[in-house]
């Protein structure tokens, strides 16, 4: 299921909806985001918003959660069904380019679980 975001109430709604089921507003489809080939799959990349900082050229698609899943595996996860190379990562579009872009630059990797990762200047050499 691909989720977009309602431009009025900001709730997530199926991209296929003609209108937001919660408020009747317009649902903006998710943008396609890809991770550059060879990018190490760390929490920073899979869960966060450091793609722009990494200067990715968006050459190959990766699911947000989990390893690339072949089209015939039968396994599924959000945003990872079907043909990996053409599959968009789901995600909120940049509605307010300035604010959202700034937020995405600032927030960095997000915790799936556990303590937040160290800040970028904490001597990490594993990303």
């Amino acid at each position: 299921m691909s989720l977009g975001i309602c431009l009025d109430c900001r709730r997530h709604a199926r991209a296929s909806e003609a209108a937001c089921p919660f408020c009747g507003g317009t649902v903006q489809p998710p943008v396609v985001r890809r991770v550059a080939a060879g990018t190490a799959l760390t929490r920073a990349v899979l869960l966060g918003a450091t793609l722009s900082a990494a200067g990715c050229d968006f050459t190959s698609a990766q699911p947000v959660y989990g390893a690339p899943i072949p089209a015939d595996s039968g396994a599924s996860d959000s945003g990872a069904d079907g043909d990996v190379s053409a599959q968009p990562l789901y995600g909120a579009p940049v509605l307010d380019a300035g604010a959202d872009a700034a937020m995405m630059e600032e927030t960095g990797p997000m915790a799936d679980y556990g303590a937040p990762p160290p800040p970028p200047d904490a001597g990490s050499d594993a990303r």
Partner: peptide, 15 residues
């Protein structure tokens, strides 16, 4: 959810 996790690559929590 958008406020809390909109900055995630997925834009929201997954499973």
């Amino acid at each position: 959810e958008h406020t809390l996790r909109g900055g995630w690559a997925g834009g929201h929590r997954g499973s």
